[in-house]
Measured scan of single mutants.
Amino acid sequence: IRCIGVSNRDFVEGMSGGTWVDVVLEHGGCVTVMAQDKPTVDIELVTTTVSNMAEVRSYCYEASISDMASDSRCPTQGEAYLDKQSDTQYVCKRTLVDRGWGNGCGLFGKGSLVTCAKFTCSKKMTGKSIQPENLEYRIMLSVHGSQHSGMIVNDTGYETDENRAKVEVTPNSPRAEATLGGFGSLGLDCEPRTGLDFSDLYYLTMNNKHWLVHKEWFHDIPLPWHAGADTGTPHWNNKEALVEFKDAHAKRQTVVVLGSQEGAVHTALAGALEAEMDGAKGKLFSGHLKCRLKMDKLRLKGVSYSLCTAAFTFTKVPAETLHGTVTVEVQYAGTDGPCKIPVQMAVDMQTLTPVGRLITANPVITESTENSKMMLELDPPFGDSYIVIGVGDKKITHHWHRSGSTIGKAFEATVRGAKRMAVLGDTAWDFGSVGGVFNSLGKGIHQIFGAAFKSLFGGMSWFSQILIGTLLVWLGLNTKNGSISLTCLALGGVMIFLSTAVSA
């Protein structure tokens, strides 16, 4: 259960009878995928790494000078000259100064003066180019299975845990398959586009800190620079940016070097996208990844198990997540596992009318040892309800109150669905055939309105939902006002479609 501690969480529900669903994975976010007769899966884009970055340009932001020398000439005696002028490691300046009897010249006039100092770069920052084909995306998957609280967001041991898996995709191999043991396998067909235009970005490294910066900004930095990788004795261009020549006297000129420019660069980098280094690879934390999940090989585990009949206890007080759902960790005293956990939410304890829904599909106890633990997640209705676990006299209950409203949740879900469709863009549509167009249209309606429909009408039977949709269509056909007619027709059509397409 990876997503319960992530604030940016998206719930995606598969269409009834569908074998695939489109998701948008982004750094700092987590996606929970639910479908009829399929286990619930949490998917998170953990890291995006980039390798084989080529150094484009380096800037010196802290330097020192040494070996200063000057040469001067009297008027009419030609130009002052130093051998160091031809050495690229030196920074030199030529000027004219007033000369006369007082400073060793027989004539009054302008004399030539040249001053040089050896330039040494102490600290530099480097910009590297990123090729999209060198990106690698690491995705962690977790099935809502027989897990306890100690396994949440624990990325170790996934090789031997059938509840978890790690997959890596690249532009050259965008397809992967996550093996989930008894739950089958989940196929991923990803489109490795981060949403960032790397043709316009460089990877900047300064003092063990890293950013993504725009090329134009990078090339306009007014500091000494050299092109390409460091060859040991780089040729620094624009050395004068960190060196200041003071007022010249008759035979000498003082040279000083400016202080470190790291603070000024940090100020200019305010708002830039931060990154990290992992050995020789860069780690990015921006952008998104679009994936199509193929769920035809994914299956529920323990459908044929019998119900657990022994007593359950709450190991922890049920807690609310950031998303309005409830996490419950229970301990089973029996030894008759594997068995299914009898769990439901009810409005009252007399009729036990089921409300809400299970995020953890078909929760089971897989071990036959005593005191096995299991964590599950529920989506309670707004208002008061009861969490009921167990059967008969051994069942345990917990009162729950959820604040908020169904309308607010439906609106929030619609906005999130619209954002998801905007990110998917043209990849969500198939114009290759008439059937493809209608299929894409259905998927689009489901992406945007599916979660809201589930919130508003999830407790009704599909037949009642179709009746309401048919009534809206009838009202649309018999209303003389054009805008009201079109609105009723659209709402009725969407409702009829979703009542037959969205899983219960």
Rank of each mutant, 00 (worst) to 15 (best):
G493H: 06
G29R: 00
A428P: 07
P234I: 04
P234S: 14
A272Y: 10
I130L: 10
G106S: 00
L113G: 00
A413K: 09
S142L: 05
N362T: 08
T76L: 01
L96H: 04
V437M: 15
E79F: 09
T233E: 01
R357D: 08
I448E: 12
V391H: 14
S199M: 14
L135N: 03
G232P: 05
R357N: 06
S185R: 03
I365K: 03
E320R: 09
Q331C: 09
G100C: 05
K373L: 14
Q89M: 11
K316H: 15
L196E: 00
T233G: 14
A280K: 00
V33S: 02
T487Q: 10
P318M: 10
I65G: 00
S372D: 03
H144T: 02
Q89H: 10
T351W: 02
Y332W: 06
A422P: 00
R416F: 07
L376A: 01
G425Q: 07
F431A: 03
F119Q: 08
L472E: 10
R138C: 02
V494N: 10
L358S: 15
V23L: 03
R99P: 04
L475I: 08
H446W: 11
G100S: 08
Q465G: 02
K110T: 03
S483A: 09
E136Q: 01
M421I: 10
H398G: 00
W236T: 02
W462M: 07
K128V: 00
A272E: 08
C60A: 02
V330N: 08
S142V: 01
N237Y: 14
A176W: 12
E240N: 15
T500G: 00
F108I: 08
P381A: 03
G287Y: 00
M495D: 13
T160E: 04
G109N: 05
N439G: 14
F411I: 12
D426Y: 01
G302K: 05
L300W: 11
F198E: 05
G18Y: 01
T170R: 06
F119M: 10
E168I: 09
R94S: 15
P171M: 11
G18D: 01
I152D: 02
G356F: 08
T95R: 12
K128H: 05
G442Q: 08
K294F: 06
N371L: 15
T427W: 10
Q77G: 11
S185M: 05
I448L: 02
K215Y: 14
E136T: 15
F463V: 15
I221F: 10
D83L: 13
P380V: 03
Q344F: 03
K84I: 06
A333S: 14
A413G: 00
A311D: 09
T327V: 01
E370D: 15
I445P: 10
A165C: 13
I484D: 10
N52Y: 12
M206L: 14
F453K: 12
K128A: 05
D296V: 07
D189I: 04
I387C: 04
A63V: 13
G302Q: 04
L475D: 10
D87A: 05
K283L: 02
K480E: 12
V343K: 04
H266W: 13
N8T: 12
G469A: 14
Q331G: 10
S455P: 12
G476Y: 07
V91K: 10
G432T: 15
L201Q: 13
C291N: 07
I387Y: 07
D197R: 03
E136S: 15
G28A: 15
G271E: 09
C3W: 07
E133Y: 09
E44Y: 04
G493K: 12
K294E: 14
I4D: 10
F312C: 12
M151H: 09
C190Y: 11
A227H: 03
N371M: 04
G109K: 06
M140G: 15
L96F: 15
I387D: 07
T205Q: 12
G78S: 09
M53Q: 03
S129L: 15
K123C: 04
V153N: 14
L141W: 11
T88E: 13
E136I: 00
I466C: 14
A54L: 01
G78I: 04
G157R: 09
K394G: 03
T231E: 11
Y137R: 01
D384V: 10
L352R: 11
T95V: 08
T325I: 08
H323R: 14
K281F: 14
H226S: 07
S499P: 03
H398C: 01
W400N: 11
P132G: 00
L196S: 07
N163K: 04
K297C: 02
D37W: 04
T40Q: 06
M53S: 00
L376R: 00
T309Q: 06
A63Y: 10
A165Y: 10
H401T: 02
T335Y: 13
A272P: 12
Y203W: 09
A504V: 13
I496Y: 11
A422R: 00
S122N: 08
E367V: 04
C291F: 03
V415N: 12
I65W: 04
S51Y: 06
L300T: 01
S405H: 06
S16T: 15
G417I: 11
Q253Y: 10
A229H: 02
H323M: 12
L82M: 07
K316S: 00
D200M: 11
V56I: 15
T500N: 06
A35F: 07
D83C: 00
G109A: 06
F457P: 12
R99W: 12
G282F: 08
K38E: 11
S173N: 06
P224N: 08
R164Y: 01
K281G: 02
R252Q: 05
V328W: 05
A270D: 02
M460R: 10
D200P: 00
L107C: 06
F453S: 11
T267N: 15
Y137G: 02
Q85N: 10
S306V: 14
P132H: 01
K283N: 14
N208I: 00
H446A: 08
Q36W: 13
D197M: 14
V255Y: 00
P342A: 14
G259E: 09
N362A: 01
T156H: 03
F463Q: 04
Y137E: 04
G287N: 00
T19W: 10
M421E: 08
M495C: 08
M68W: 12
G356V: 02
T479F: 06
G492H: 11
M206I: 14
K123L: 00
V167D: 05
